[in-house]
């Protein structure tokens, strides 16, 4: 029987827990279920293509598979802004999971990606949380902050009154250590831990800035079509399962990592005061509407989201 080898470019560095937990897991499962007929050849972040180029490479069929963050495909996928997380929308991870799989947001993403020959499968939904050097106990504390941020959250934090700037990952530790910035977000506790941020910033801020499907596995449709029917189904099923398994596992790992940070680095959880949360939510809602303007599809998704949040009693 014919065997297939897929080149898979990840946007995770090898040390990121997701590289092992998401990709290596998928590699093992696919190999097992196809009796070794499908082999994934994994490449760590930056090996063949830089993160922002992975979508293009998969779309062109140069790579058979890749992992991305939706924000890397913003120029093609009009829903990417919503997929990578509207600030202060969901309050629990399960809400975001249901939005994707129960309400059909995942299918909307999949349809948009299909126009570029890409099969879209969200790897998991999870929170993005901030770490800061000094606790935020009041609105004044928040607006004083200089925060390392990126993308939509950078706009959000700036609009809300903090001073958000972009600093590349390689300089983040130094910047936080020397006080160029007072806070940063890099995933949530696992991300902060892997970047060594807890060494220099001792307060872990909750609630999350956003909760979203920030990691996505993408497959070249061309490569998928080349597989025999049974293998295509195996791949798609494995990806569907992956979402639920990883979303749950990630939450578990977030919690134990935070516990480790608390024990080993003396980190404290800094829950934002209610008035700060309220003001942040107000700012956030103004920004949501901007995302809705990107396309009819985005408008539809945003309306769906707002209805859902009203239903949950948050709006």
């Amino acid at each position: 029987e014919e065997t297939y080898t897929w080149k898979v470019q990840s946007h995770w560095p090898g040390s990121s827990s997701s590289y092992e937990d998401s990709l290596v897991r998928l590699q093992k499962i696919l190999e097992e279920r196809t009796d070794g007929r499908l082999e994934l050849e994994l490449y760590e972040a930056g090996s063949l293509f830089k993160a922002k180029e992975i979508f293009n490479a998969v779309s062109r069929g140069i790579l058979e598979m890749g992992t991305i963050s939706p924000s890397y495909a913003q120029d093609k996928i009009t829903l990417a802004g919503i997929a990578s997380g509207l600030p202060f929308a969901f309050r629990n991870v399960w809400e975001a999971a249901y939005f994707h799989q129960g309400l059909g947001f995942e299918q909307m993403l999949r349809d948009e990606a299909a126009e570029y020959g890409v099969y879209w499968a969200t790897d998991k939904v999870y929170p993005t949380e901030m770490v800061v050097k000094q606790p935020i106990n009041s609105w004044a504390d928040f607006t004083k902050l200089k925060i390392r941020s990126s993308g939509a959250l950078q706009t959000f934090l700036t609009e809300a009154g903090a001073a958000a700037s972009y600093i590349p990952g390689g300089e983040l530790y130094t910047a936080l250590d020397s006080g160029i910035v007072d806070g940063a977000h890099w995933g949530a506790s696992q991300g902060a831990f892997s970047m060594g941020l807890y060494e220099v910033a001792k307060y872990h801020v909750q609630p999350a800035l956003n909760i979203a499907g920030t990691d996505v596995i993408i497959v070249s449709q061309k490569a998928l079509d080349k597989l025999p029917e049974d293998m295509q189904n195996i791949v798609k099923q494995a990806l569907d399962e992956q979402f639920w398994f990883r979303t749950n596992e990630y939450q578990y790992k977030e919690r134990i990592t935070l516990a480790k940070a608390i024990n080993e680095h003396g980190v404290q959880v800094n829950t934002l005061p209610d008035d700060v949360q309220d003001r942040l939510t107000q700012t956030a809602q103004k920004l949501w509407d901007e995302e809705g303007k990107r396309s009819d599809n985005a408008k539809k998704a945003l309306d769906m989201l707002k209805d859902y949040l009203s239903e949950l009693g948050y709006l």
Binding site: E44, G170, S194, G196
Partner: peptide, 16 residues
């Protein structure tokens, strides 16, 4: 050293 930051990032040791 950018290199050391990278090493720390890949291996998980402390940058400091």
């Amino acid at each position: 050293s950018i290199l050391m930051i990278l090493y720390a990032l890949i291996t998980g040791v402390s940058v400091g």
